[in-house]
């Protein structure tokens, strides 16, 4: 992959704190999905947005300075843009004859690069084939979103998880995330029904069974119904999950305590 794209490197994603623009991206994605989503699903829109921003930056950069190509002839004072060095700009300070028995005659330009300022030498009037002589559209060298996720997903997931945790507009249950505003209303009546059902059964009950007695909107996504109920039950001190996060079984704390006392 082309190393001039910063999104191509582990260092970029490892050190990436997601900012307000990213938070907006997460919000927009969650809103468009409209149902609970696993953390992994939030990664794609973030990566896509970062890659797109970088492509736009590079396209804008390409409009500044003549692109450096080894086969070309140059003169002192010319400004060049070095695509293989992150599109850094530089000014030619001097030109000398090159020497390498492997190639025919060529020249060497001494270039003062910007950011940081340093003097480096590059080949010019180069007779041999060189990849930089072929003009490539920036889109062709841009990293693919799926490839970035495959290579650096572990770092990005950590950053996204942190961003979701710190955003009070999101709630989470069992590795799924949902906008708080999208939660179905689980009111005190629903919770009382759940309590009564468990009380009568004298045993923990799965959320699917509880949901059958709730009057949630019929067209509401089943995953949204389950998430909303499970989340509400975790927020109510009366209830305790005696199963797992993947397969919860809701019991009453009161009954558990009574069971311990007998």
């Amino acid at each position: 992959m082309d190393t001039t794209y910063k999104t191509n490197s582990a260092a970029y994603w490892e050190n990436l704190p997601l900012d307000e623009t990213d938070q907006d991206q997460l919000y927009a994605f969650a809103l468009s999905e409209g149902k609970p989503c696993h953390l992994d699903k939030f990664v794609h829109p973030i990566v896509e947005a970062h890659c797109q921003r970088e492509l736009e930056r590079i396209v804008a950069l390409q409009k500044e300075g003549l692109p450096y190509q080894p086969a070309e002839s140059y003169s002192v004072g010319q400004d060049l843009r070095f695509a293989a060095l992150g599109h850094r700009l530089g000014t030619i300070k001097s030109i000398r004859k090159g020497h390498n028995p492997r190639f025919g005659p060529f020249t060497v330009i001494a270039v003062e690069l910007e950011s940081p300022t340093e003097l480096r030498e590059f080949v010019s009037d180069f007779p041999a084939a060189h990849a930089l002589n072929l003009p490539v559209a920036p889109e062709d060298k841009a990293p693919k979103v799926d490839t970035v996720i495959q290579l650096y997903g572990q770092y990005i997931r950590e950053q996204v998880a942190e961003a979701l945790l710190s955003n009070q507009e999101f709630v989470s249950y069992n590795g799924l995330w949902l906008l708080k505003d999208l939660l179905l209303e689980v009111h005190v009546g629903h919770l009382n029904i759940a309590e009564a059902m468990i009380d009568v059964a004298g045993a923990p009950i799965a959320p699917e069974e509880l949901l059958a007695e709730m009057d949630f909107p019929e067209d509401a996504d089943p995953s949204l119904q389950a998430f909303s109920l499970n989340y509400a039950l975790t927020q109510d001190a009366r209830f305790s999950n005696t199963g797992t996060d993947e397969k919860p079984l809701w019991h009453l704390v009161r009954l558990l305590q009574e069971g311990e006392n007998t």
């Binding site: 450096y68 080894p70 070095f82 293989a84 060095l85 090159g98 020497h99 390498n100 028995p101 492997r102 190639f103 060529f106 060497v108 480096r120 030498e121 590059f122 080949v123 180069f126 041999a128 060189h130 990849a131 930089l132």
Partner: peptide, 18 residues
């Protein structure tokens, strides 16, 4: 003998021994 080694990715020249 010192030669101008050419980086075939960046075009940079490195003054190195043969």
């Amino acid at each position: 003998e010192m030669v101008d080694g050419v980086d075939m990715v960046t075009g940079e020249v490195h003054r190195v021994s043969l």
